[in-house]
Write a protein that binds this DNA or RNA. Structure first.
Lengths: 247, 247
DNA sequence: TACCTCCATTGTGTATACATCTTTTCCTGC
DNA sequence: GCAGGAAAAGATGTATACACAATGGAGGTA
């Protein structure tokens, strides 16, 4: 095929299709349960059906889209319970990563990464609640969970975590900024940070079971955010992806 | 397209491609790391590149095949450690399913299914080691793990377990019959069955933590089977998929 | 013999064509 | 007004064509 110059450079059509459809999905453009017509999406994204189809198949594997028995795909409807289970599962997987990291030991370089990150977050939290740099905190939080994921050096676990957090709900940063509107906002971040610190400490002290329990508990913060968001329509409205969550 | 009658009926070309390639892969036809040429496979399976391509993309998601950076796919090389981690992870996931089942409670129907299955296995193990019906035992074992998977009623966890056990190594039945050649064969099955029973009991008594720990420990039997198989070339030769396991 | 270059072969990514199957719409009969 | 069914509209699954990319090997040079 001729390399079209009309779109962002450097990406394949399939990649464009994938990110394009993801964006459409999680910006709430489609009704939950609605059929995703390949020709329609192809026209919308200005590419042929082939990469669209490939992207849809992949999104089905990721769980963002359901296969219709008679053919094709539909926007997945998420039940609240599914998301809660996904968060629980992220806790379990991160807990396993942390436990194995503790049991197997981490490298000095990894330990250093953890330590510097913890200091960075400490610095961010030093300022009063109003002036907090949300962007930076969110980025740091993402890095922390990346570090945990990589900590045990298991590609199998890393892969599974990547898969699970492909859905925007279970991801560590998913509903992080829900907390911004809560009275105890700053306090909840301080609590999260103390959990971060405890997890790292447990890993370094080779306390596997403790590391696992802590990481599980840490994931439960996300659960609370989801519950808050689902019960407050004003907050809910700010997360278009939550349109897909029913009941 | 015209529905070709030359192949097994009732399946789509994509399904044929998927199962066909899986079979080729895990029967050790290809070298680990070798490129999987779409035209070559298409010709071999007597279909066009399109379904082959779709199947390969899916197998990549499943982890059976690696994407080559420059394009296309290659037979995945499995490290022994990857498989051990996958087994560990299966234990973790089944453990989580069992824990949640205990915490949330299971239905009388589920309880009944467990109980009848346990009796069935007991009956199978009644006969002396030589005369054991391997087929039946393997089937029962599969059902047990299905029941555990479904026990907590979480589609998220079920999906994740399905994904993990798509690889033939981490699956509960994967290397089950390795044990057949071991002196303590019958004993190991009896041990496994006692674990089965304990897991069910823990779930029914709502002892979540115990159920989780037991399920994890139970998965470790598979670990042992893998180690035995990898260290005995005669046994290894009987599992063609083990060709893909390096070091 | 070892190595580099160039060319041929092969392979992938994408677009498109087309047959079949679904779904929707609209018309007719009750 | 509603139900049922036929026809049309649209969608999917698959095959195929083709441009670009990559890979491998032959041949020539040091």
């Amino acid at each position: 095929m001729m390399e079209s110059e009309s779109q962002e450079r450097g990406q394949s059509q399939s990649e464009r299709a994938l990110s394009g459809i993801r964006e459409l999905l999680f910006s709430g453009v489609f009704e939950p349960g609605a059929r995703l017509s390949e020709p329609a999406i192809a026209e919308r994204l200005q590419l042929s059906r082939t990469p669209v189809r490939a992207a849809l198949a992949r999104l089905e594997q990721e769980g963002a889209v359901d296969a219709i028995p008679s053919g094709g795909f539909a926007v997945r409807k998420f039940a609240t319970d599914d998301i809660l289970d996904a968060i629980e599962l992220r806790g379990v997987l991160e807990g396993t990563a942390a436990r194995l990291a503790a049991e197997r030991g981490i490298s000095p370089a990894q330990s250093m990464s953890f330590r510097t990150l913890l200091s960075e977050i400490d610095a961010l939290l030093q300022v009063p609640g109003e002036d907090l740099d949300h962007e930076a905190y969110t980025a740091c939080n993402a890095v922390f969970h990346e570090l945990v994921k990589e900590s045990c050096g298991s590609s199998v676990i890393a892969r599974e975590l990547d898969r699970l957090t492909a859905l925007p709900f279970a991801s560590p940063n998913a509903l992080l900024m829900v907390q911004r509107d809560l009275p105890e906002f700053h306090g909840s971040l301080v609590l999260a940070q103390s959990q971060h610190r405890a997890i790292v400490e447990a890993i370094e002290l080779r306390e596997g079971s403790r590391a696992e329990a802590l990481a599980r508990e840490h994931a439960r913060l996300a659960r609370r955010n989801l519950e808050v968001a689902m019960n407050d329509d004003r907050i809910k409205a700010r997360y278009p992806a939550l349109t897909l969550v029913t009941a």
